[in-house]
């Protein structure tokens, strides 16, 4: 896949940062506002997909990136399971129990473990969608060769 023109590249560069930040915002405010890990993760993946589309696949060394994002994806979900399992060992000892203090309603740092779950779900979804996209691109490149 070849890259696009200078204008597209520049605009994509400018936009992708904003989209990424917006994704992070949606994820971290998941317990306060609509959205959360899944929606924000999709935005994270979107910002990176935008860059790959604008700059083309030759520049980016896609295979390495695919390995990286697949490792991030797996570790994120492992941490997610780890949090759920830690809850079996502390406090009331129940799987998926919210073992951190709740905090005050409406604060950014509140709701116990839920923001942490959101963050790792966001990482997982973003990395997974990006991996799927890369797998499709790599497959197409290999077929064209």
């Amino acid at each position: 896949m070849k890259g696009m023109s200078v204008i597209v590249k520049k605009v994509a560069q400018l936009l992708s940062g904003l989209i990424f930040m917006y994704g992070v915002y949606i994820i971290t405010h998941g317990h306060l506002t609509p959205g959360g890990g899944f929606a924000g993760g999709a935005l994270l993946a979107g910002s990176m997909i935008l860059l790959v589309l604008a700059f083309g696949s030759d520049v980016m060394g896609l295979k390495k990136r695919e390995t990286g994002s697949s490792i991030i994806e797996n570790s994120a979900i492992l941490v997610f399971i780890l949090f759920a399992t830690i809850a079996m060992l502390v406090g009331t000892r129940v799987f998926f129990h919210n073992f951190l203090p709740g905090g005050t309603l409406g604060e950014l740092i509140s709701a116990g473990v839920i923001p942490l779950y959101n963050i790792f779900v966001g990482m997982e979804v973003g990395a997974a969608l990006f991996t799927i996209f890369l797998a499709l691109v790599i497959y197409k490149e290999e077929v064209l060769k």
Binding site: S70, I71, N74, S75, I77, L78, I81
Partner: peptide
């Protein structure tokens, strides 16, 4: 099985 499934790829 889920932990095993996600440890294997790493």
């Amino acid at each position: 099985p889920l932990v095993a499934a996600f440890l294997i790829p790493i």
